[in-house]
Simulated scan of single mutants.
Amino acid sequence: MAAEAFEDIVADFEFLDDWEDRYRYVIDRGRSMEALDDALKVPATKVDGCASQVWLHPKIEDGRFSFEGDSDAMIVRGLIAVLKALYNDMPVVEVTKVDAPAELARLGLNDHLSAQRSNGLRAMIERIRSVAAEAA
């Protein structure tokens, strides 16, 4: 069910030997992402429940879901990039069907994120699912 872009991340993770390399990989994915326009960093796009500042700006065009995002923490920017690979360009009606915890477990993220980061990741997923459910 996961998008090809996410499957590429899974394959890259299998290639990397240890978590430090995987951690750097996630951060690099975040670094390569374009920054969210400051005009979109408003209370309506801010995700509550994250230890760092996080903004998600969803878009639905032609029945397909995508989002842009940003954070003031590099690892969280990387997690946003991973979620973009999982969800972007998916039919909006399919977004809520994705078992994000199971997909992300394939990367072993649950074992290597702090409790605060895990809570923030769950909050981002819930925001994505909520927007998609409203639009569907």
Rank of each mutant, 00 (worst) to 15 (best):
R117W: 08
E103F: 09
M90C: 11
D99H: 07
G69T: 11
E34V: 11
V10C: 12
E34I: 00
A81W: 07
A123W: 07
M74V: 06
H112E: 03
R22F: 05
A51M: 14
S118I: 01
L109C: 07
D37N: 14
A136H: 09
F13N: 10
F67N: 07
D8K: 15
V98C: 05
A35D: 15
S52M: 01
A35F: 06
E94M: 12
I75V: 13
K97I: 01
R24D: 14
D38L: 12
A5L: 09
D99P: 10
P58E: 09
R31A: 11
L40C: 05
S114I: 06
D48P: 00
G120R: 07
F65T: 08
D48C: 00
E134S: 15
K59H: 14
A11E: 14
M1V: 12
L79K: 05
V98L: 12
R24N: 13
M90F: 02
V10S: 10
P58K: 03
P101T: 02
A105G: 14
I125K: 02
L104N: 08
G63V: 06
I60R: 05
K41N: 01
G78W: 01
A3P: 00
G78P: 07
L56M: 01
V26F: 07
D89Y: 10
A133E: 14
S118M: 12
E61R: 14
F13D: 10
L36K: 03
N88W: 10
F65N: 01
A100T: 06
A35Y: 05
P43I: 02
D28T: 13
A105F: 11
E126A: 14
S66E: 10
I125N: 03
S118A: 13
P58W: 04
D37T: 08
I125A: 03
A51N: 05
S118D: 10
L36Q: 06
K41F: 03
I60D: 09
A136M: 13
R22E: 09
A102M: 08
D70E: 10
V131C: 06
A85D: 15
M74A: 15
L113I: 10
I125H: 03
W55L: 02
P101W: 02
R31P: 04
E94K: 13
E103Q: 13
V54K: 02
E103H: 09
R117M: 03
E126H: 06
R31W: 11
E4N: 12
Y23A: 07
L107N: 07
W19I: 10
F6M: 07
K84Q: 15
S114H: 07
S71P: 10
V93N: 11
W55V: 02
P91R: 11
I60V: 15
R129D: 13
E34F: 09
I27T: 08
R24I: 04
R129P: 00
A51V: 12
M124C: 09
L86G: 08
A44N: 04
R64N: 14
G108L: 05
D17L: 11
I80F: 02
G69W: 11
L56N: 05
S118F: 00
A85G: 12
L36I: 03
A136V: 12
L16D: 11
L109S: 09
D48M: 03
A102G: 05
V95D: 04
I75M: 13
A115I: 12
D72S: 11
P101N: 08
V42N: 01
D89K: 09
Y23I: 07
V92M: 03
S32P: 05
N119M: 05
Q53S: 14
K59V: 11
E134N: 15
R29N: 13
E134D: 15
